[in-house]
């Protein structure tokens, strides 16, 4: 991982952002949350963004995940600058290249664990229903929920739900996994298990993981650590 200079990405980068700026709020309440932040992440690595609340960690993550638009700067994914791309394009890239794991699992409670994991695959539409079912079952098995595939999301514990969310994030084999405090809502035991799962599965598939966390233990186990303060990276490891 490196702090990148402006320009097109190099071939072995999963994602690169260049001089991202972002303001939030309006009028007198308008504040600059990100100040020309640049970042490049290689496949098969785990990067942690840490810092106090309000420093811009999550905002950066949402920008990298194309859920939000920067006021300035570039976001390169799959050799395309998508910072100001249209909504359709950004949505399609999210579906194909990005997997999200949030602090709150955000599973659809009316669907079973298996169906939740199949949702991104159904949207991508590249596999047959049988292939999608098999892959979802395999992913759930990998996160230790092979026996609970038919359970509705609300019939699972918090840790189990987060593991389903990880399986869902991996469903389309995205090149980038973005995790916003994925263990923030879990106890110590479940936190360790979820982090272990996430990093092991992603590394096995050569996926780049960027996670935002307040947990120093988790941050310490990542390949790269990016402390952030007042909208900029202050130092790197």
């Amino acid at each position: 991982m490196n702090i990148a200079a402006p320009g097109t990405p190099v071939a072995n980068e999963a994602i690169r952002c260049v001089r991202l700026t972002r303001h939030l709020g309006a009028g007198d309440a308008r504040v600059q949350v990100l100040r020309e932040v640049s970042l490049a992440v290689e496949p098969g690595t785990v990067s942690a963004i840490v810092g106090p609340s309000g420093c811009g960690k999550s905002t950066l993550l949402y920008l990298l995940g194309l859920l939000d638009r920067p006021d300035g700067g570039e976001i390169w994914i799959a050799n395309e600058n998508l910072a100001q791309a249209g909504d359709e394009k950004r949505t399609q890239v999210r579906n194909e290249h990005i997997g999200f794991v949030f602090q709150f699992h955000f599973l659809l409670p009316e669907f079973s664990a298996l169906e939740n994991v199949m949702l991104p695959m159904r949207k991508l539409g590249r596999a047959t229903p049988a292939q999608m079912t098999a892959r979802a079952a395999q992913l759930l098995d990998a996160v230790g929920l092979g026996e609970k595939t038919r359970r509705l999301a609300n019939q699972l514990s918090g840790g189990e739900q987060q593991r389903v969310a990880i399986a869902r994030a991996l469903a389309n084999q995205p090149s980038i996994i973005l995790a916003d405090e994925p263990t923030g809502n879990l106890d110590v035991k479940n936190s360790a298990m979820v982090f272990e799962l996430l990093t092991r599965l992603a590394k096995e598939n050569g996926q780049a993981i960027i996670l935002v966390t307040h947990n120093p233990d988790i941050a310490g186990r990542c390949d790269f650590l990016h402390p952030m303060r007042d909208g900029v990276f202050v130092k790197k490891r």
Binding site: T91, L119, K123, R168, N172
Partner: peptide, 9 residues
């Protein structure tokens, strides 16, 4: 979450 996983408007 549907939007984040690629469902369009």
């Amino acid at each position: 979450i549907l939007r984040s996983m690629g469902y369009t408007r």
